[in-house]
């Protein structure tokens, strides 16, 4: 899930690895690389595993998306030869996004709105928390950090289950709102409330945003901020003109790391609303994967999400690389 990316971004690991790669290719052969079959021997099992269970399955997806459907059993029949690929499944999905029979359009639009809204709320919440813990918390830092990463070790489903319990019709939330029986509150929170789904997304993913932000803010040079204040900037101005520009790469990375996984999320909506009124693109994928004859459509939708995610992913790698080179 999002978790591990956020973690490694938090440690600032991914970029060094990518950069080492570039440097290593340019470097002349070092002593230990010379004349030893040890490297290939160690790497080959992992390479074979990735080829067999990672690269080959991706080709199977393409073969099924561009393949046929068995007319009788409604099962997907993969077509292996790219020259015989038939784009009808992709066309079917694409033609149903906008227009009269746009059955996928509303869910796609809803996904965009929910993810943007949840991402924005996450940022508004995560930035102050990360700022406080990284820069101002003093000797409580270790303890606070442990509390901040606690959600990482609590299963996502457990956290959603906790809210399902609280949001029942006779649950604690309704009782809290009724102020001890003073008002009669009977809100059905768990039946297709967009607010609940967006807040559920925020609840589920905000921890993944705090950690990268924390790492970025922790690395800000204190002396630069002090210089800004010494030179007469107000508190607000030094934040706006020094702190914020310096952690722009971190913010971009944190937002992307949080929002990209939300694109494929279907379980939050399923757990907290279970209504087609709040279905996201992940729900479309999940529903069509499980119904016979729609396997190709599911594959096409997955490809669509992947295409939407690829551009920000590359942008992310570039921004973090630049941010690391600058610091």
């Amino acid at each position: 899930m999002a978790q591990r990316l956020a973690c490694l971004q938090g440690w600032g690991i991914l970029t060094p690895v990518v950069l080492t790669e570039v440097a290593a290719q340019a470097k002349p052969q070092s002593k230990r690389a010379r004349g030893s079959a040890l490297g290939p021997a160690l790497a080959v099992p992992g390479i074979i595993w990735l080829l067999l269970f990672f690269l080959a399955p991706l080709y199977v997806v393409l073969a099924i998306v561009f393949g046929r459907t068995d007319p009788i059993f409604r099962t997907a029949v993969p077509v292996w030869n790219p020259l015989q690929w038939n784009p009808s499944q992709v066309n079917y999905v694409l033609s149903r996004i906008v227009g009269d029979n746009g059955i996928f359009g509303p869910a796609l639009l809803r996904t965009a709105i929910y993810v943007l809204l949840a991402g924005l709320l996450c940022l508004l919440l995560a930035f102050p928390v990360a700022y406080y813990v990284a820069r101002l918390s003093g000797r409580w830092k270790g303890l606070l950090l442990a509390a901040l990463i606690a959600p990482f070790w609590i299963s996502y489903m457990m956290r959603m289950l906790a809210w399902v319990n609280l949001l029942q019709d006779d649950g604690l939330v309704n009782r809290l709102f009724s102020l001890g029986g003073f008002f009669d509150v009977r809100t059905h929170w768990l039946t297709g409330q967009p607010v609940v789904v967006v807040l559920g997304l925020v609840y589920g993913y905000v921890a993944y945003m705090i950690l990268p932000l924390y790492a970025g803010l922790d690395r800000l040079p204190q002396s630069t901020l002090e210089a800004a204040r010494d030179l007469g900037a107000s508190r607000f101005a030094s934040f706006w003109r020094v702190t914020l520009p310096m952690c722009r790469p971190t913010i971009v990375a944190a937002v992307l790391l949080t929002c990209l996984p939300m694109l494929g999320d279907y379980f939050t909506s399923d757990m907290l609303s279970a209504s087609p009124k709040t279905a996201m693109v992940g729900n479309l994928i999940n529903d069509s994967v499980q119904s016979p004859g729609q396997t190709g459509q599911a594959g096409a939708l997955v490809m669509l999400v992947l295409l939407v995610a690829v551009v920000p992913m590359f942008y992310y790698v570039r921004v973090t690389a630049r941010g690391d080179a600058a610091s």
Binding site: L14, L50, L58, L263, G299, L306
Partner: peptide
């Protein structure tokens, strides 16, 4: 390939292996 497997959304790998 390893890095791509690291950043790819999980649902893609899941659907691919299911197929």
């Amino acid at each position: 390939l390893m890095l791509v497997s690291f950043v790819l959304p999980e649902v893609l790998l899941a659907v691919a292996l299911l197929f």
